[in-house]
């Protein structure tokens, strides 16, 4: 498995996480990914370990259900079951915008390079890819786009901000 940081365009610094089945015994060391069910059932023992524990959730998970764990886990991994299923984009968006999650969100599963820029702008920070060539395709694509109309959830300006020479203000204020 290859990893890529969507902002830094390298994966060298990213930790590999091992996906644990719900009934698999925990390893002695190394970072692990567990399901929400397992984390809920075994939180005390899991979080007492001295290795990083990440939460692996499908795209259809509800951000609010993850809320109690967001400050306790090392990362959230969103699994895309199929490349055409875009629920993971909304989940990532909600984790950032609704839940205020500031940690790493990693996308896994059936990803294609055409997702790259959409993932980044939805709040996903890294991807896990099976094919080293796919990493090149992701990087190529991320370099291809320099502008976007929509809010980016980070400091990068939108076209509207550039066009009107200012940052956005809250409508309500």
């Amino acid at each position: 498995m290859e990893r890529l940081d969507l902002r830094k365009l390298t994966g060298a610094h990213l930790k590999p996480y091992r996906q644990m089945d719900d009934d698999a015994p925990m390893p002695e060391e190394g970072a692990v990914l567990v399901s929400l069910e397992r984390l809920t059932a075994e939180s005390e023992t899991l979080l007492a370990h001295n290795y990083p524990v990440g939460l692996l959730v499908p795209g259809q998970a509800k951000a609010a259900d993850l809320a109690p764990w967001l400050d306790k886990v090392a990362l959230i991994a969103i699994r895309f079951e199929k490349f055409s299923d875009g629920r993971g984009f909304s989940l990532a968006h909600r984790l950032r915008d609704e839940q205020g999650f500031g940690g790493e969100i990693r996308a896994t599963g059936h990803l294609i390079a055409d997702h790259a820029e959409f993932l980044l702008r939805s709040g996903v920070t890294s991807v896990e890819l099976s094919d080293p060539l796919a990493v090149d395709h992701f990087i190529k694509r991320l370099k291809l786009y320099s502008l976007w109309y929509q809010d980016t959830l980070d400091a990068r300006p939108t076209i509207l901000e550039l066009r009107h020479g200012r940052t956005r203000k809250r409508l309500a204020s």
Binding site: G86, H93, E117, F118, L119, R121, Y149
Partner: peptide, 13 residues
């Protein structure tokens, strides 16, 4: 049109 063009979240509905 602009808002919906290459929308990051709503391109795989």
């Amino acid at each position: 049109r602009q808002w919906s063009t290459l929308h990051p979240e709503f391109s795989f509905l």
